[in-house]
Computed example of a mutant assay.
Amino acid sequence: MEQRALFGQVAEDAAYLVSPLRLPPNRSPFVQLRLDVLFAAPTLVELGELASRLELEGQTFKVRYLKSGRRQTYEGEREAERRIGARIHGIADMRAPNVTLGLLAREEDWVLGICRSAEPVWLAHKEKPNNYSTGLSTVVARALANIAVPQPEGQRAIDPCCGMGNVLIEALSMGIDIVGRDINPVAVRGARSNLRHFGYDDTDIVGIGDINELDGTYDAAIVDLPYNLCSVLLVEERRRMLDSVRRIAPRAVLVSTEPLERDFAEVGLVVMDHGTVSKGHFVRKVWVVSGFVSGVMSK
Rank of each mutant, 00 (worst) to 15 (best):
G280Y: 07
E266M: 07
I211L: 14
F282K: 11
I211A: 01
D210V: 05
E237H: 11
R196T: 13
G180Y: 04
R189Q: 14
R196C: 04
V167M: 04
L234R: 14
L229W: 06
V188L: 06
S193Q: 14
I205R: 06
S173W: 08
V283L: 10
S278K: 14
V188A: 05
G209H: 02
A191W: 09
A249Q: 02
D204V: 04
G165I: 04
Y218D: 03
V271P: 15
L269G: 07
G180N: 03
D204G: 12
L225R: 03
N184G: 02
D215L: 10
I211Q: 01
D182Y: 03
W287Y: 09
E237A: 13
G268K: 12
M241E: 04
V179N: 01
D224P: 06
R189F: 10
V271T: 15
V271E: 14
G207F: 07
M272I: 12
M272Y: 06
K279S: 12
N194P: 04
C162D: 03
D224H: 13
A191Y: 10
A220N: 04
M174A: 05
V255E: 09
L234P: 07
G275C: 11
G175P: 08
C230R: 13
V235R: 14
R262E: 15
A265K: 12
I169M: 13
L234G: 15
V277D: 11
I169E: 03
G163R: 07
E213A: 13
V286T: 08
D263P: 06
R240M: 08
W287E: 04
T217W: 05
E213W: 01
K285A: 07
V289K: 02
E236S: 12
V271Y: 01
N212D: 11
T217R: 13
H197E: 06
I176L: 04
T217A: 10
A171V: 01
K279I: 11
I222L: 13
G268P: 11
V270A: 13
I205G: 02
R284A: 08
V267W: 05
N166Q: 15
T203C: 03
E258Q: 13
D182V: 00
S231W: 01
D219P: 03
A220W: 05
C161D: 08
V289T: 04
D202Q: 12
D177H: 12
G275S: 14
I208V: 15
T203F: 09
L195M: 09
H281S: 14
I222V: 15
M241S: 07
V179E: 13
D243R: 14
A221K: 06
L214Q: 11
L214K: 05
Y200I: 09
F282N: 12
M241L: 13
D182T: 04
E170Y: 00
M174N: 06
G190R: 07
V270N: 13
N184V: 06
Y200N: 08
G199K: 09
G280A: 07
E170K: 02
V277K: 08
C162S: 10
G180M: 05
L242T: 09
M272R: 14
L195K: 06
L195P: 07
L195N: 06
L225G: 08
V167C: 04
T217K: 11
E261Q: 10
M174F: 02
